[in-house]
């Protein structure tokens, strides 16, 4: 009896989760098949004699073996690299600043509870329209990688820190917007409704109801994106958008291997420093 009752209660269903799992498996299989058979990528060929020599040469060049005066032992080069690191840091801060400004301007109408009127307790006919437009902007800006934004921006601006910062900001604007709109959607509505029912205006609702609730979460997301941005600065630099990446790319083209090692050292140091700083700031915010 209990057995059959259990069976009745939980019949086997080919549900969404199982279906997704199957699709995922299919995708993985077909991808590997495509790579091995259609692209005819040779896995064992990766370990051929030739490639091993390549790798060895490449690594010993990077390590500056047999090179007179490698860049990472040269004080002048260090000075230049540290200056570039400083510029890269500025670029990342500018990027997150731009992204934050754009996000703050758009985030409230992009929240679902603002569009349907529960947040402000007043409903406007254009609520859903504005919501849709802003959400589309978010998806568009976050679907396009920073590097591709940078490739396009570089057609408009001259090479330097600004185009890099704008490209990074464009991509992160979409991500920050999405994350922060979700924060607003998950707000506890009770304090806001009580403010509204005691006669608070729109501005008062924003200043006393919404901002104190969401600010800590916003800032922790902003700091988290800052960590990601600092890693990506080197990549937007590749297309000429300034900072460490640009010089890295140049020394790559000139086969100045030891310069590249120096820039990589600076880059990793910068990433670790920013990680450390952002973690400390996030703890302080809590």
């Amino acid at each position: 009896m209990t057995q059959s009752a259990k069976k009745l209660r939980r019949p086997f269903r080919f549900g969404f989760v199982k279906f997704s799992f199957l699709i995922a498996l299919l995708l993985i299989l077909s991808s590997w098949i495509f790579i091995f058979w259609v692209e005819e990528a040779d896995f064992l060929g990766l370990f051929s004699e030739k490639n091993r020599d390549h790798t060895k040469n490449f690594l010993s060049n990077m390590a500056g073996i047999g090179v007179e005066n490698p860049a990472f032992l040269d004080a002048e080069k260090w000075k230049q690299a540290l200056w570039l690191t400083y510029e890269t840091l500025q670029m990342s801060v500018m990027a997150i600043g731009f992204a934050t400004m754009a996000m703050l301007l758009t985030v409230v109408p992009a929240a679902r509870n603002a569009a349907d009127g529960t947040l402000t307790v007043t409903k406007k006919w254009y609520g859903w329209l504005v919501y849709g437009v802003i959400r589309f902007l978010y998806v568009l800006s976050r679907a396009v990688p920073e590097l591709i934004w940078a490739m396009m921006i570089i057609f408009i601006f001259k090479p330097g820190i600004l185009p890099g910062a704008i490209a990074l900001a464009l991509h992160n604007f979409g991500i920050l917007g999405k994350l922060c709109a979700e924060v607003i959607e998950d707000l506890d509505m009770r304090p806001i409704r009580s403010l509204a029912s005691s006669g608070a205006g729109k501005v008062q609702l924003l200043v006393y109801g919404i901002i104190p609730e969401v600010m800590p979460k916003f800032i922790s997301y902003i700091l988290y994106r800052w960590e990601v941005i600092i890693r990506t600065t080197i990549v937007v630099g590749f297309v000429g958008a300034g900072g460490l990446g640009m010089e890295f790319k140049l020394s790559m083209s000139w086969f100045h291997y030891t310069d590249m090692t120096l820039f990589l050292i600076c880059y990793v140091m910068l990433v670790w420093m920013v990680d450390f700083l952002s973690e400390k700031l996030r703890k302080a915010m809590r």
């Binding site: 790579i35 990766l46 490639n51 390549h54 490449f58």
Partner: peptide
């Protein structure tokens, strides 16, 4: 740089 242009 190490293994050349391969999907891998």
């Amino acid at each position: 740089a190490a293994v050349g242009l391969s999907p891998f």
